[in-house]
């Protein structure tokens, strides 16, 4: 698979990129910091067994610089000589308290996780359709499924993103473009470090494995860890009066 990953230097994106590299997929990494991209590319090359080879490409791309999305993607496609999949794990996180107290951070979360991720996906969609379809896999969150008092600011951005991704899948699947919306629950990464891990906490490697399966099969929605499918099914049906009392 010729794959572009936006956000592969850390967390779940790092874990997923390793699985792809180890099975021999061709990759271009997009990210903000060239030095970080270089190190991650090297890591993936060694893991892929091609030490010294120039197999993993990198392109600088900042989620806050949306004018550059198109050219970064074009450069990546050119380097890969085609395009089968685009994966987006980049984003910004803040807890409810952090976002309540800090309007600038809130702005960053809303812009990065909703506005600019949508813009990026639009650019990716054009290029995927041009090469005959493929997979667009984007990391949203279970926080975007139902508003909870403890996580609705971050959740609002993710809700918007999930909504968009669902529409995209309805509209373009017939043309060969499958959209995969990943909804992780609490996963132990640096993003969540320092927060109390709730029950059903996931590990990035296991999450990456289930996401890769979903990408290969073109499943439109994937919960990770999988138990969150059932948790969210229940939560979606809870009456508002009950929801209001939930403390998590």
């Amino acid at each position: 698979m010729k794959t572009v990953i936006f956000g592969a230097t850390r967390g779940m994106g790092r874990a997923l990129a390793r699985l792809l590299a180890e099975r021999g997929d061709e990759l271009v990494l997009l990210g903000r910091d060239p030095a970080e991209l270089e190190k991650s590319a090297k890591d993936l090359e060694i893991r892929a067994g091609g030490a010294g080879h120039d197999r993993v490409g990198t392109e600088v791309c900042d989620l806050f610089d949306r004018k550059a999305f198109g050219s970064a993607l074009d450069a990546a496609v050119q380097r890969l000589g085609g395009l089968d999949a685009v994966i987006v794990t980049a984003g910004v996180f803040g807890t409810q308290d952090e976002l309540t107290d800090d309007a600038d951070l809130l702005d960053r979360v809303l812009v990065a996780d909703f506005v600019n991720t949508v813009h990026f996906c639009e650019e990716a969609r054009l290029r995927l359709l041009e090469s005959g379809g493929g997979k667009l896999c984007v990391f949203s969150s279970v926080a975007g499924e139902r508003a909870r008092r403890t996580i609705f600011l971050y959740g609002a951005a993710k809700a918007g993103l999930s909504y968009y991704l669902e529409g995209l899948d309805h509209r373009y699947r017939g043309e060969g473009l499958a959209t995969i919306c990943v909804k992780p629950g609490f996963v132990r990464t640096s993003m969540t470090a320092g927060l109390d891990p709730p029950p059903f906490t996931g590990e990035p490697d296991a999450v990456a494995r289930s996401v890769l399966r979903a990408i290969d099969r073109g499943r439109p929605v994937v919960y990770a860890p999988p138990i969150w499918r059932w948790i969210m099914l229940t939560i979606r049906w809870l009456p508002r009066a009950v929801m209001r009392r939930l403390r998590f």
Partner: peptide, 9 residues
């Protein structure tokens, strides 16, 4: 994912 205080413990 970016976090302002990376992994603040």
């Amino acid at each position: 994912m970016d976090r302002r205080n990376p992994g603040a413990g």
